[in-house]
């Protein structure tokens, strides 16, 4: 295809992506290096019966005018990245030198909002992804062993948790584990503690969020693996059987190698999706117990004072993390492309 024709065909898509993905990223980068103008401080001389004294006061009007004239604020370099809300170098150094045990140091680190968010996000990503793959594979095997006639309805029901909106899906679950909900009461009964509440306990909240994560994405893994199981080469399978391979060996040496590329694919998509975990934390009103990178940005953008610059710095750090997470895939895709 000629260059000109190619450009004509991709133009609408390209323009949309440049205007609303590339430019916002640039806007985020610029914002992350700026901070709102400080308040305009004036020295006011006030004279009373006992002589004059100089006091400092905030000139609200001038501050307002300056902030409106230059909404971007002033250039502050890397300040936004190293302040307490983000990488917090000073606090980290302090925590390191003042802590005597690892536990003490860890609890100090977890109190820093950015580190708390990244620890939760990474924990969520790396626990939910393998569990999703395992559960998805198990469902695929189970559905595959069912009678052909009922597989359609089985797939229909299995798809529900995945297709339903994440806010809605997590709300439905949240209502059930509420202290007055059916699952919440079941948990209280099992633990024989009538005051146990998921909302009040950090570990319970983390577990619930991860249970939701697995429940929500397992259907995706299931559908992909199920499609893979349909195309396992039956000749190879039969040949292995004739060679005396038992059931387990056939699964190990025929089915698993066939499924492996799909596992990589599901893992990649799941890593990307779990890393941006967002909606369940909102539905579960989890902010007191768990904060992900996405909800941390949201809380900066919707707080009493909107902190654009802080949100921008977090966004940049998040994008960098996504880049690191994706780098093995990108390198591999590039190699495949060169080979082809």
């Amino acid at each position: 295809m000629r260059h000109g024709t190619f450009l004509a065909f991709v133009a609408p898509s390209l323009i949309a992506m440049i205007a609303l993905i590339v430019f916002p990223v640039i806007s985020v980068v610029v914002q992350s290096f700026h901070a709102q103008h400080e308040q305009v401080i004036e020295i006011v001389e006030s004279c009373g019966p006992f002589g004059c004294s100089e006091t400092t006061a905030v000139n609200q009007e001038a501050t307002q005018a300056l902030r409106e004239a230059e909404p971007l604020g002033r250039f502050v370099g890397w300040d936004n990245y190293v302040n307490r809300g983000h990488l917090a170098f000073a606090e980290m150094a302090e925590a390191w030198s003042s802590s005597e045990t690892w536990g003490e140091w860890w609890s100090k680190v977890m109190n820093l909002p950015f580190y708390g968010a990244i620890v939760f996000t990474l924990t969520f990503t790396f626990i939910v992804t393998p569990l999703t793959i395992a559960l998805g594979f198990a469902i695929a095997v189970a559905v595959n062993s069912a009678t052909r006639a009922i597989r359609g309805p089985l797939i229909f029901i299995s798809l529900l948790p995945f297709i339903i909106n994440p806010i809605v899906g997590s709300l439905v679950l949240f209502w059930m584990v509420d202290a007055r909900g059916i699952l919440g009461q079941a948990i209280q009964w099992l633990a024989s503690d009538p005051d146990l509440s998921v909302k009040a306990s950090t570990p319970m909240m983390w577990i619930m969020l991860m249970v939701y994560g697995v429940w929500h994405s397992a259907p995706f893994a299931f559908v992909v693996f199920y499609a893979g199981l349909q195309t396992v080469n039956q000749d190879t399978n039969e040949a292995a059987m004739i060679d005396g391979a038992n059931r387990w060996q056939r699964v190990r040496y025929v089915t698993i190698p066939h499924i492996m590329p799909l596992v990589t694919f599901v893992a990649l998509i799941q890593l990307m999706d779990n890393f941006r975990v967002f909606e369940p934390l909102i539905s579960f009103s989890a902010e007191a117990h768990a904060q992900s990178l996405s909800t941390y940005i949201l809380s900066d953008l919707t707080g009493e004072t909107v902190l654009f610059n802080s949100a921008a710095a977090t966004s940049m750090l998040t994008v960098v993390c996504v880049g690191i997470l994706l780098s093995p895939v990108l390198v591999r895709t590039w190699r495949d492309f060169k080979r082809a």
């Binding site: 909404p71 949201l298 654009f308 998040t318 990108l330 590039w334």
Partner: peptide
Amino acid sequence: FWFLIAALIFRAMPPITLVSGYLL
């Protein structure tokens, strides 16, 4: 190829990071 790779990277970015770029 690069077009598609760029799209893959865009796909991986949390939408909320872009929103923080739109608002101002």
